[in-house]
């Protein structure tokens, strides 16, 4: 699959290149287009620019100085210190919780989806069509419409206010199954499987030794998107958790922000920590996306076209 994606890309580059050479007008258009896209890029990056600037300010400067440039004092390091020490270091605890929830959910969901996607794509069995149809039909069931029902069930079996309340619901990803099903259909050739079977390899051996490698881009794609979904999830942990020591970073930051802007007895000093904490919380995911882009982009191509 990867090869069929890579090949057109390099060929198209040359085609476009010769195109530009034949028509000098396109060269000018490219500047105009670059300028227009540059304006869009400014829109998409300026809130993050503001966040970086704001993280260097103390609470006083946040209110009194111009928002899009540095304030009087450079307080980034004292802000980071305040963020990590506030209320016995609960920020670090929330980051650790988020990491655990997101990684466990993502590895679990991507593994389940990869196994099942492969099973649906490579084997014929009774009821395969209806079963797959049922699961894929639930892609359209919104996660938050499912959240309150899950809460009701979990409170019945005493799972609310535990880490499981966040991890378990994130394990089922019908869209992940869809991606892996499409991916496994194209990435694994029947003849290779057949050859391995003739050699007497068991089904699990075949899966782990022969096919898993070609499923990696799809696996990483599902992994990353479940990671983001769990990392960014707010509604589910908000309703499931009461104990702040279980909070993920989203609910934690939200509770700090409520204290910072709330009316009576509000703690305005906390605002600088909300801002700095927000900045620190988005760095790991951005880094993950940049480092793993080779994988998730080819994985997405498979899903996007075959729908």
């Amino acid at each position: 699959m990867t090869t069929t994606i890579e090949r057109p890309r390099s060929r198209r580059r040359t085609a476009a290149g010769s195109h530009v050479a034949r028509r000098p007008r396109s060269e000018r258009r490219s500047n105009l287009l670059t300028l227009g896209m540059g304006a869009l890029l400014v829109y998409f990056l300026f809130p993050l620019f503001w966040l970086v600037i704001a993280a260097t300010k103390n609470t006083g400067d946040l209110f009194s100085t111009f928002g899009l440039w540095l304030g009087e004092d450079f307080s980034l390091f004292s802000n980071i210190q305040a963020t990590f020490t506030h209320n016995h270091g609960e920020y670090a605890r929330w980051m650790a919780n988020t990491l655990v929830y997101a990684v466990v959910s993502a590895v679990g969901a991507a593994s389940l989806a990869t196994f099942a996607g492969y099973g649906f794509a490579r084997y014929t069995f009774r009821g395969r069509g209806p079963l797959l149809g049922l699961i894929l039909g639930t892609i359209m069931v919104p996660t938050t419409a499912l959240a309150i029902p899950t809460y009701l069930l979990f409170s019945k079996v005493d799972l609310v206010n535990t880490p499981w309340a966040i991890i378990l619901p994130s394990l089922v990803s019908p869209f992940g199954l869809f991606l892996m099903w499409v991916y496994a259909r194209d990435a694994v050739s029947d003849s290779v499987l057949e050859a391995a079977r003739i050699d007497g390899a068991g089904e699990l051996t075949i899966f782990f030794k022969v096919t898993l490698r070609s499923l990696v881009p799809g696996f990483v794609t599902v992994l990353l998107f479940t990671l983001v979904a769990t990392w960014n999830n707010y509604f589910l942990p908000l309703i499931m958790l009461n104990d702040p020591s279980y909070y993920p970073i989203t609910v934690g930051l939200s509770s700090w922000s409520a204290q910072a802007v709330g009316g009576n007895g509000s703690n305005a000093e906390l605002l600088a920590s909300v801002v700095t904490g927000s900045l620190l919380s988005i760095i790991p995911l951005i880094a993950a996306f940049l480092l793993l882009q080779r994988y998730w982009q080819s994985g997405l191509s498979a899903g996007a076209v075959k729908e």
Partner: peptide
């Protein structure tokens, strides 16, 4: 253009 997707909606709304 893709980077904002990696920002949690909570942080986006706060910003």
């Amino acid at each position: 253009v893709f980077i904002p997707y990696a920002v949690p909606s909570v942080v986006a709304a706060l910003m």
